[in-house]
Design a protein around this nucleic acid. Structure first.
Length: 899
DNA sequence: ACCGCCGGGTGCC
DNA sequence: ACCGCCGGGTGCC
């Protein structure tokens, strides 16, 4: 490695090697540890600065909203750029124990409640140990910028790290594009010497590792995280060994499951350094060793604790749950001697928080508050039954003590929980009491915490996530079949749960991974790869080992069955589409697409409903005019109710603030739909304006959704009046044909519209089919009963299960069926694939046929195209900014409306 | 001397 | 801190 550090060629070569090794299995096998060390040394030595990119983009969380600010982002994530840096002193070093290294990234923490100075800014090292404070006469200029959300600051110690009383610190100031001149101006007027990136001396002066402006890495930057995961699939080193589970697992594991078990156990028991750490001898030949974190350049002579846990990201259908049960069962036996021994043996005293935690646990060992043997599993309610099922099916009865921490009669006693081997609970319970220190969930020091479907905590600010972060555990696992949805920041949330320092800190995550990714700097990509390579395991069903798929599944074919609307529906469809185009055209022309996004979604929704059956679209004449007239809406509670029931009919709106499906959806008087919490928070911060259209809004202008639509519509479809739609005819015809060929074949019928499921019921009955149904309104018990009936083998058992796409939840096992009918397409192909995978998964013995019913010449065809486009362009790319996402949305709308 | 100068005590926020 | 600053002691040469 030459003195200029990590060259583009090296990065490219390393990447290529990685990808090649991951894809073609047997050839070159990179050793992840060695690879990480290569990386680490490369970055640590990158002292001579390569040319500087013009702007350093970054995604950072604005710590507080600025009430008086002009631009309001619906989300608190927004692009920030480097304004420049100013050098300040860190003072008071003599009072604190936190040490730093030259060129080390430090945390700058606002201390608004500091009794001596409300502008205080604390300086911490990577471990969160205090180093000192920023001298107050400079802090007083920086703090207001941070507090009002104008700027975000990051610190690096350029030199002087061994000083006794004070040391310099370069404070890098970032702000959003529009505020950059203001921020710079305020800094300069405050008398701070600011070096901007335009400054010819910037490169010599800065201690920041300046990202190279590498256009060549754009293609990497454009990759979705899923693809990154997929380039890491089946790392040979990770899974070369297989591990037999403890005998109390009564079912033989598939070989890929044994490999996963070996990997999980290795990750829990290895004493390797955590990711991004490397060992260094003090001097050549010196016995004294140091450990350096290559992300922050933090150095310590204490060996960092191994990182026990990680991300199990196997594609769904590979049997993750059974693998985890095996881990719990297998390590249960290994445990009794290893844990106690381990904790006592390598335990040099230390002042670090991490060690302290362990020390505490040692002390409390005596008064019986020690690390429990119990594993806490947090999962969605719908997945809980899967865990229970797997435990019943695959373990010796009575061999594992399982407690269901669920239901009103759950215990309040921590020691009851800690006496079990497995405690199962749900995210809702965790959210409800997880932040309450009196909760037994919080009192137990878990051996292991497993978050199943961990992407649920992707929003780190949600109470549920916070509760997950505060659980005390020796080992942490995030389990998810769909690891990344919104990009790299979802991963940050997982890191916060996993407590992988320093990446569990948003600021460090942004600095070392997110920002480089966004600005097209290869280091972010490479670090991310290195990280995932070490702590994540992902296999997909198509992966091959020794030319054999890891899971042999029957054939799956996807066919499109094109349907022509009947005359009446066609007329309605054309009319609505014409009107919709006119409206969208207006919005596009006047640049108000986003302000009218909810209206547009309504239009699209209507069109999609008409494709299923025109009666699903409740408003006929002139309803679009009503949509575009907000005042009318606000004075018409009835309409609001209707709108909301539409919202709840199983369709997929995203709250524009959190960009997720809304929880507790509310609609504003200006007809924008948000999560209740999101909009309430926004209103409190942002001067009571609608974030979408900036109309004045107060809490009283919000209308809550009516309680779950339930089976209100389940009133038997009035058979005469509701003629079968073309699609229903097609469905029945297809089902009849299948039955003719083989009466035992079972089918799954998916729709996004609960109403559509209602409408197909009568025709199915008329054709002599027995069916069951699962939708969002059903209780867990009812769902289980329906599923059980469907899975039964007898000749009288139902042949058809009707499922609402959204309510079906994860993990549902539908291998009893081999035919799948998707009544309507959804634009996120992943969701559809997930649905299909419930049928096409382990245990399926028949070939699976998936039939997608698509109306010719309709929005459905365009949705298909959009899906294709999304697949090809990987538009879930992680390097995407909010702004880019908006643009994509506008384009999507235009495409859907054929404009 | 309402000064200057000396030298000890002292030191983040 | 081998500094700055504070405030008490002190006071021609």
């Amino acid at each position: 490695m030459d003195s200029s550090g990590f060259s583009q060629e090296q990065i490219r070569a390393a990447t290529a090697m990685l990808v090649a090794a991951a894809t073609d299995g047997l050839s070159s096998q990179p050793n992840p540890r060695a690879y990480m060390e290569t990386l680490a040394s490369g970055f640590a030595e990158a002292s001579a600065m390569p040319p500087l990119s013009h702007k350093f983009a970054t995604l950072v969380r604005a710590s507080q909203a600025d009430g008086g600010d002009d631009e309001q982002e619906p989300d608190d994530e927004e692009e920030k750029y480097l304004v420049g840096f100013t050098e300040v002193n860190v003072v008071g070093l003599q009072y604190y124990h936190g040490t730093v290294n030259n060129r080390e990234m430090v945390r700058l923490v606002r201390e608004p409640h500091n009794v001596y100075d409300r502008n205080a800014i604390r300086v911490d090292n990577m471990y969160g140990e205090q180093v000192g404070h920023i001298e107050r006469y400079k802090a007083c200029h920086l703090a207001p910028l941070v507090d009002n959300g104008l700027a975000v600051i990051e610190g690096i110690i350029p030199r002087g790290s061994k000083n006794t009383y004070r040391m310099p610190c370069q404070v890098f100031v970032f702000s959003k594009d529009t505020a950059m001149p203001t921020v710079l101006n305020r800094l300069v007027r405050s008398g701070l010497a600011v070096t901007t990136p335009n400054d010819p001396n910037f490169v010599q002066l800065t201690a920041m590792t300046v990202p190279e402006n590498m256009k060549s890495t754009q293609e990497e930057a454009g990759k979705s995280i899923d693809e990154i995961f997929d380039t890491l699939i089946l790392n040979q080193k990770k899974v070369s060994a297989a591990m037999e589970p403890a005998p109390l697992i009564t079912t033989p594991l598939y070989s890929h499951q044994k490999e996963a078990l070996a990997w999980l156990a290795e990750r829990e028991n290895s004493n390797d350094l955590p990711p991004f750490w490397q060992e260094q001898a003090e001097r050549k030949g010196s016995a004294r060793k140091f450990y350096v974190n290559s992300l922050t350049n933090f150095m310590t002579d204490q060996k960092p604790d191994p990182f026990r846990g990680g991300i199990l990201a196997d594609e769904m259908g590979l049997g993750k749950t059974l693998t985890l049960v095996s881990l719990i069962a297998t390590n249960k036996l290994a445990m009794s001697h290893s844990l106690v021994g381990e904790t006592q043996v390598e335990e040099p005293t230390s002042s670090r928080p991490l060690k302290k935690q362990k020390l505490d646990s040692l002390e409390s060992h005596i008064d019986d508050k020690s690390v429990s043997q119990a594993t806490l599993v947090v999962c969605p309610l719908s997945v809980m039954s899967i865990w229970i099922g797997q435990l019943e099916e695959h373990t010796l009865p009575g061999s594992l003590k399982v407690y269901l921490y669920h239901g009103a009669d759950r215990t309040r006693k921590a020691n009851v929980l800690s006496r079990h081997d497995i405690v199962l609970t749900t995210y809702n319970i965790l959210a409800a009491e997880g932040n309450d220190l009196r909760s037994p969930l919080q009192k137990v020091r878990w051996l292991r915490v497993i978050l199943d479907e961990a992407h649920i905590i992707k929003n780190p600010n949600a109470g549920m996530s916070q509760a997950a972060f505060s659980l005390k555990a020796e080992r942490r696992w995030a389990v998810t079949g769909t690891p990344i949805q919104n990009g790299a920041k979802d991963l940050c949330s997982l890191m916060m749960f996993l407590k992988l320092q320093p990446l569990d800190d948003k600021s460090f995550w942004n600095r070392t991974i997110q920002r480089p990714l966004l600005s097209g700097d290869a280091s972010g990509f490479i670090r991310l790869q290195a990280l995932l390579m070490t702590i994540a395991l992902r296999r997909t069903k198509d992966m091959k080992v020794d030319d054999k798929r890891i899971v042999e599944l029957p054939q799956k074919t996807v066919n499109i069955h094109t349907v022509d609307l009947n005359e009446e529906d066609r007329q309605i469809y054309d009319r609505v589409e014409l009107e919709g185009k006119r409206l969208v055209g207006q919005y596009v022309a006047s640049g108000t697409v986003l302000q009218n996004y909810s209206t547009i979604l309504q239009i699209i929704l209507r069109l999609r409903q008409i494709c299923d059956h025109s009666s699903l679209c409740p408003l006929k004449e002139g309803f679009l005019d009503t949509f575009s007239d907000m005042k009318d809406l606000s004075s018409s509670p009835e309409l609001l109710q209707k709108l909301l029931s539409v919202l709840q009919s199983g369709d997929d709106f995203d709250c524009p603030i959190c960009l997720s499906p809304p929880t507790l959806a509310v609609i504003t008087k200006c007809s924008h739909v948000f999560c209740r919490k999101c909009i309430e928070k926004t209103l409190m911060q942002d001067k009571e304006k609608c974030p979408m259209c900036r109309v004045a809004l107060t809490a009283s202008d919000l209308f809550a959704a009516p309680p779950a639509v339930e089976t209100r519509e389940v009133t038997e479809p009035e058979t005469q009046q509701q003629e079968w739609s073309a699609k229903i005819r097609a469905l029945v015809a297809l089902l009849l044909e299948v039955r003719k060929n083989d009466p035992n074949v079972k089918s799954v019928v998916f729709s996004q519209f609960a109403g559509m499921l209602n409408l197909v019921q009568a025709p199915l009955e008329a054709a002599g089919f027995k069916y069951v149904r699962i939708d969002g309104s059903m209780s867990l018990k009812k769902r289980e009963a329906a599923l059980k009936a469907f899975q039964a083998k007898g000749p009288d058992s139902p042949n058809i299960i009707l499922l609402s796409l959204k309510a079906a939840g994860v993990g549902l096992n539908l291998v009893a069926a081999s035919q799948v009918y998707m009544l309507d397409p959804w634009w996120n192909p992943a969701i559809e694939e997930q649905a299909m995978d419930r049928v096409h998964r382990l245990g399926q013995t028949r070939d699976v046929e998936i039939v997608r019913l698509i109306v010719r010449d309709s929005i459905e065809e365009r949705i298909l195209e959009l899906q294709e486009k999304k697949r090809n362009l990987a538009s879930s790319a992680f390097g995407k900014s909010t702004d880019q996402m908006r643009k994509t949305r506008i384009q999507d709308v235009q495409h859907l409306m054929q404009m």
